[in-house]
Each structure stands twice: as C-alpha cells, then as structure tokens.
Amino acid sequence: MTTLNDLQTPALILDAGRLDRNLERMAAKARSLGVALRPHLKTSKSWDVAKRQMTTPQGPATVSTLKEAEYFAAHGVRDMIYAVGIAPSKLARVAAVNAQGADVKVIFDNEAAGRAISDFCEKQGVTIRALLEIDCDGHRSGLPPDSPELIKVARSLRPGSGAELAGVLTHAGGSYNATGPADMLHRAHEERDGVVRAASRLREAGLPCPIVSVGSTPTATFGDNLDGVTELRCGVYAFFDLFMLGLGVCRQSDLALSVLVTVIGHQKEKNWVITDGGWMALSRDRGTASQKLDQGYGLVADINGEPVPEDLIVVSANQEHGIISSRDGSAFDLGRYPVGTMLRIFPNHACPTAAQHPQYYVVDDGTEVRAVWPRIYGW
C-alpha cells in the first residue's frame, strides 16, 4: 500500500471523496434548474476526472485549448465547445478533430473571425459550428447584448459556406469580484438576462440560436433561475480553491486539491518554516490578496488535509522554496514541524496549480494513495 508518506514532493493530491461530492452537487443544481451541464474540463485536464464530470462519456463538455479537444476526442468525447475566441490559424485543427467524429464548436465576437470561419469552411468543404460570444458584464471579450453590431457579426458566418451559427455563449467573469450572496445572485441574473436578450435579438432577425450557454462557478452556485438558457458551464467547482472559499462559494471541507510538500529547514529568528514547495509547485497566483482574507500562496494543512491549529500560510515563495509563517507573523512552535514533516498546501487557484503537475495522486479522505491519474499540458 502506497501512502502520501511514500511520495516524492512536491506532489499534487486530489481527494476523490471531496471531488465526487462537488461533482454531484453541481449536477444536481443543473437538474434543478432544468438545463444541461456542460462542465469545463480546463481545470482537471484529465480523462479520469472528466468522465466523472460529464453526464455521458460523449459530453457535453467545454475545453479551453485545442490540445484538450484532441485529448478528450481521443477518449470518445464528441460534443465540445472550445470556449476561447477562435484564431483563424487554429481552424484546421478544429476540422481535424471533427473529421474524427467530434463536434467541436468554436466561438467568435467579430466579423473578421466570422469571415475567417466561413472562408475556411467553404475552401475545405467542411462544416464548423460557431457560437457568438456575449459580454454580459464588461469582464473580458464578447459583444454586449444590445450591441448594434450583434446581428451584423452573426451574419458574417455566410449561409451555405459550411459555417453555422450554433447559438450564444457568455461567461460572468465579473462574478469573481462579487461582494456577497446578494451581489452574486444579481450577477447570475445579469448573466442570464444578457445572454437571453442576445438570443432573442438573433431569433427576431431570423437567425438560428439553439444553444444559449452561461457559466461561471460562482453564478452556477448562486443562480436560482435559468429560464431561456439551455446549458450551464463551470469548471473549478470540481476542485474548488481558496479564492472560491473567499467568495463564499464553497466550504473549506470542499477543497479537493492540495500540494504535498516537505519541510526542509527553518529560520527561527523569522518564525519561518521552509519547504520544498515553491511557486513552481503552487503557481504564482495571489488572487486572495484582493479578498478580505489574504491566504498568501496557500493555506497550510497537515498530511491528512486538516488545517494546522496555528493558522499558517505560505507567506512567500521562490522557485523551489516555500516559506511558511503564521498569518499575522506571530511566533509559533517551529518544533511542531521538524525537517521531514509532510504538509499539504491548499492553493489560491486550482487551475494554475494543477497546471504545474503531470499527475494527481488520488486519496479518499485519508492518506492512502489509491490511484494515480495523469493529466495533460499545453495548447
């Protein structure tokens, strides 16, 4: 039997019991709202996680890279949305995946991209379905629901070219700045209302809009009504992280992902414990610095995944060194953490932390490693 004590550190630990509970809660939420769940697979980038997230082995699913699309298509996933604005140079890869039996849909928010999709499809004699990206909250890319350009951009997919309008998609990224449950609910309504309004405008103009897609983990968690929406996308809900904890989206006991590190030394005069888990293992993400509770580079837990009583965080990180101290800088008994002690660090942001590692060491509410699940990298 392999346990966490047997592993070389740093190592990425996934608690399967917490993962499964997180997945079931979101699946139940989608069912209660009467919409399809199209989970985002960008956080896990792993078939072993994805097959637990999706409602069928064929999808639906969301991906953020074409490498993910290729990887999951090789495992039999068919219904995917590549949820990053399409670069014309990537259309050949989309077509190649689709030629193997998949239906990878792309997104766009401008006429140049729409024309590029049309030109490619017409020249290659292929069909690619595309969704118009809607900006529901000024967070990032997309067209505002009431944009005067909306219909014109949608029509840049030329009829008969092979490029087909599949619907509209939005992401309430502004929900990551929400200030409480009421604000989160408001943002969920804003997300829904914006994308539904855009869909209505397209239909009134005689354009098809079968898919009306919304999604972010915060709005998915707090949303109470998705009338007019067909599907829900979210991804980090599978693992959760300290940023989601700070938003009130999850509980500490829901955090499924952590990084196992080993104590390698101390700086007694500074009240520091030094580990072998630096920013190459944890990532440089400092997202909680803008929240009420700054978690440094991560929250320190014992090898069983229970936060240590001294309220320790990783206060600083070099490439391969993590520096642990008390949150307020006060002294604590360094002797409780001798060289060789293994600790687990809950990260600020699950996506970039997982991206640093080639595999998950899977436990189930304990320290026994019951499986090793590979994950992929790159674009």
Results as ranks from 00 to 15, higher is better:
T2I: 03
T3M: 03
T9M: 01
I13V: 03
L19F: 13
N22G: 05
N22I: 04
A28S: 14
V35H: 05
R38F: 03
P39T: 09
T43Y: 03
W47H: 07
D48Q: 13
D48E: 15
V49H: 11
K51T: 08
R52C: 01
Q53M: 15
Q53Y: 10
M54H: 10
P57R: 10
S64A: 15
T65K: 07
K67H: 14
Y71S: 08
G76N: 04
R78E: 00
I81Y: 07
I81E: 02
Y82D: 00
Y82V: 00
V84F: 13
P88D: 00
S89H: 13
L91A: 05
A92H: 09
R93F: 09
V94Y: 00
A95F: 00
Q100P: 03
D103G: 00
V104W: 00
K105N: 09
F108C: 04
N110M: 09
N110S: 14
R115D: 08
R115N: 06
F120R: 01
E122R: 07
T127D: 06
L132E: 06
G138N: 10
P144K: 10
R155T: 09
S156D: 11
L157S: 08
L157A: 10
R158G: 04
G160N: 11
A163S: 10
L165Q: 05
L165F: 05
T170L: 02
H171R: 12
A172K: 03
G173Y: 04
Y176H: 14
Y176V: 10
T179P: 04
E190W: 08
V195A: 10
A198K: 11
L202Q: 01
E204P: 03
C209E: 00
C209F: 12
V214K: 15
P218L: 12
A220N: 14
F222G: 05
G223K: 02
G223L: 11
N225A: 09
E231L: 06
R233H: 11
G235M: 01
V236S: 14
F240K: 09
L242S: 02
L247T: 03
V249G: 02
S253M: 03
S258E: 10
L260E: 02
G265S: 09
V273P: 03
D276W: 07
G277M: 05
W279M: 04
A281T: 12
L282Y: 02
R286A: 12
G287F: 07
Q295H: 14
G296C: 10
V300P: 07
G305V: 10
E306V: 14
P307K: 10
V308K: 08
I313S: 06
I313N: 09
V315G: 15
S316Q: 12
S316L: 01
Q319L: 12
Q319N: 12
G322A: 12
G322M: 09
I323E: 07
I323S: 08
S326T: 14
D328K: 15
F332P: 09
D333F: 10
G335V: 01
Y337G: 00
V339C: 07
G340A: 04
M342F: 03
L343K: 08
F346R: 12
A354L: 05
H357S: 14
P358Y: 14
Y361K: 09
V362Q: 06
V362Y: 11
D364L: 06
G366E: 13
T367A: 11
W379E: 12
